[in-house]
């Protein structure tokens, strides 16, 4: 008798998942859609990135080739932008994490006894989502402009040099990126902290850990999955963003990020291969960084 077969689980745990043709019918339309409008575009980006101009053709006319020099060219031309994008994104992610953690901790742990208050505070966190991304960035531009009372006030208090600007500087771009992606950081942090068992903190202090020790040895490790997903949700869009860095928004000529050059190459100068090569580089760097980060922080089951 095959009794050894009983070693794994009971019938109840295994039963629900069935094999069926229905699964195929359910999956097919959506998967085909994603293949056609997500995978094929990625492939056509790769193809475009190797294209070369049509001899004697118009601007924006390219033919298929294997011109790998495109990659060398864009790195030489836009290396600064690529580096700047990741530097800004990393700083914005760190600032967003520092800003969000105490807030998420307050909402998720301290305010636990008042579910309605908790929910209202969450609404406040996501409230910026409900107003246009571009308008909120423009609002900051106006609030932090040279004529605004914030800047004039700081100058009056001699906290800022009289001829200094805020908008158009790297600091303004990083500020804008931080602000715009705070909700992406706060929400995943909240959802792991909300599930944190406070008895573990009590156990920590019971076992002679000082509050700071308990925080770094118990609370932070337990909220790691939230930190990881918050960091990813902030870093990825921040690295590819080009609104904040745009001259009409918070940036200036010296703050252009990779998104800005992709946009101008694709939509203005019609240099499609350069835009495509830059996109592939951006995507590749992000995937490598994300993989390394997820591996190192030990939450591989995140996907």
């Amino acid at each position: 008798m095959a009794f050894s077969a009983f070693a794994t689980g009971t019938a109840k745990e295994q039963a629900p998942r069935r094999k069926s043709k229905i699964a195929l019918l359910l999956l097919l339309p959506g998967i085909l859609y994603l293949m056609l409008f997500f995978l094929v575009p990625l492939v056509s980006l790769v193809i475009t990135s190797f294209q070369q101009p049509v001899p004697y053709g118009d601007i924006g006319e390219f033919q298929n080739a294997f011109k790998w020099e495109n990659y060398v060219d864009v790195v030489n031309t836009y290396g600064e932008h690529i580096f700047r994008s990741f530097a800004y994104a990393i700083l914005a992610t760190i600032f967003a994490l520092l800003f969000s953690y105490p807030l998420a901790y307050f909402i998720g742990v301290k305010a636990r006894r008042w579910p309605l208050l908790q929910n209202l505070m969450l609404v406040l966190v996501i409230a910026p989502f409900f107003i246009s991304f571009l308008l909120r960035t423009l609002a900051w531009k106006a609030i932090l402009s040279d004529e605004s009372f914030v800047v004039t006030g700081l100058k009056a208090l001699s906290l800022m040099a009289p001829d200094a600007h805020f908008t158009g500087t790297p600091a303004a771009v990083i500020f804008g990126l931080t602000y715009n992606f705070i909700p992406f950081m706060t929400l995943p942090l909240y959802s792991t902290l909300e599930r944190l068992d406070t008895r573990l903190l009590e156990a920590g202090s019971d076992l002679y850990a000082k509050p700071a020790m308990t925080f770094f040895k118990v609370t932070v490790p337990l909220s790691m999955s939230g930190i990881v997903s918050g960091v990813l949700l902030t870093f990825i869009p921040a690295a590819g963003d080009y609104i904040n860095a745009s001259r009409d928004f918070l940036g200036g000529t010296g703050t252009q990020m990779i998104g800005n050059v992709i946009e101008s190459n694709f939509l203005v100068t019609l240099n499609y291969p350069a835009a495509a090569a830059l996109s592939i580089i951006l995507m590749a760097v992000i995937l490598v960084m994300v993989t390394v980060y997820v591996k190192r922080s030990g939450t591989e089951d995140l996907l």
């Binding site: 997500f38 575009p41 990625l42 056509s44 475009t48 694709f266 996109s279 951006l282 992000i286």
Partner: peptide, 22 residues
């Protein structure tokens, strides 16, 4: 699962430029 996850992990510029290239 990967095909479903990737669009969320891809920067919007890349999604936009890719579709436009297609």
């Amino acid at each position: 699962s990967l095909l479903l996850f990737l669009p969320m992990a891809t920067p919007e510029v890349v999604l936009g430029a890719g579709l436009a290239a297609e």
